[in-house]
């Protein structure tokens, strides 16, 4: 479904050029849920944005459903295949657009018809219901906003969903609801996920395989069983797992 080979992403121009991602390669088969973990600044979100076409300064290969993508322009078919859910539900919804406006614009852009019926179905799908249709973002809680953002991503009926820390801005009880929703949607629509998170427990819960990143490089790609058992190959991964198990008094 997704192939990333020798991906380099940089920002700025020499001498101030920052290499955010260096030589990253991984593949995600259809239907899999793949995690990208690492500390802040490790380049995990940058990879996701490069895949989505939101960053154009990259080299290497990004192929979606077998089709290589260019850095500059993405076509209509790409937007119908790949969609993204952002980290901060407070920043990813336009403050002056109601839920109805967000979803109907999205559906129109994706060339859908029968807009009102589709909106109702999308809202049902993400567990919000029609009563939320005419609310503005400031009338929604964080979890409800993230559900709207997920509905927006699903409007195009994509096959690959990029999830950028979808629950890190939410309370744990709401996180559980959103993670359950994402799991249900994947099962129902046969979606492929690429999920970025700094929380190993969340990735362990959601993903089948994961890549561990450090300072712009992928240090290790491992299965989720290895993560749970703590049998990582690399020292850095073992440290990360140990640190995520909690605080041990020095």
């Amino acid at each position: 479904m997704l192939t990333v080979e020798n991906l380099n992403v940089w920002f700025g121009h020499p001498p101030d050029r920052v290499d955010a991602v260096q030589d990253a390669s991984f593949t995600v088969p259809q239907g899999e849920s793949f995690g990208l973990v690492g500390e802040s600044g490790s380049g995990k979100s940058t990879i996701l944005r490069a895949i989505a076409g939101l960053i154009d300064t990259w080299s290497g290969t990004i192929a979606v459903a077998g089709k290589p993508q260019s850095a500059r322009k993405r076509d209509r078919a790409f937007f119908k295949t790949v969609q993204m859910v952002f980290q901060d539900p407070y920043a990813s919804l336009h403050p002056r657009h109601s839920v109805d406006a967000v979803l109907s614009e999205t559906l129109r852009l994706q060339g859908m018809d029968d807009i009102d019926r589709r909106i109702a179905r999308l809202l049902d799908d993400v567990g919000l219901g029609r009563g939320f249709c005419f609310r503005y973002p400031h009338q929604l809680s964080g979890g409800q906003r993230q559900r709207v953002a997920i509905a927006r991503a699903l409007a195009a009926e994509p096959r690959l969903l990029l999830l950028d820390e979808p629950t890190s801005a939410l309370d744990v009880s709401v996180q559980a609801e959103i993670l359950n929703l994402l799991a249900d949607l994947r099962a129902e629509h046969g979606l492929t996920y690429v999920m970025v998170s700094h929380d190993l427990a969340v990735v362990g819960h959601m993903c089948d395989r994961l890549a561990v990143m450090q300072a712009g490089r992928i240090v290790e790609v491992m299965g989720v069983t290895a993560l749970r058992q703590g049998t990582a190959q690399q020292e850095y991964t073992r440290q990360l797992i140990a640190a995520s198990r909690g605080y041990a008094r020095a």
């Binding site: 744990v172 009880s173 996180q175 559980a176 609801e177 993670l179 359950n180 799991a183 190993l200 427990a201 969340v202 362990g204 819960h205 959601m206 993560l227 749970r228 797992i241 995520s244 198990r245």
Partner: peptide, 20 residues
């Protein structure tokens, strides 16, 4: 209890997280 249960855990994988 509900808050504690809703946390995903590495040592005890489960299909669905209990919702508060």
């Amino acid at each position: 209890q509900g808050l504690l249960n809703s946390l995903p855990r590495l040592d005890a994988p489960q299909d669905r997280l209990p919702v508060l």
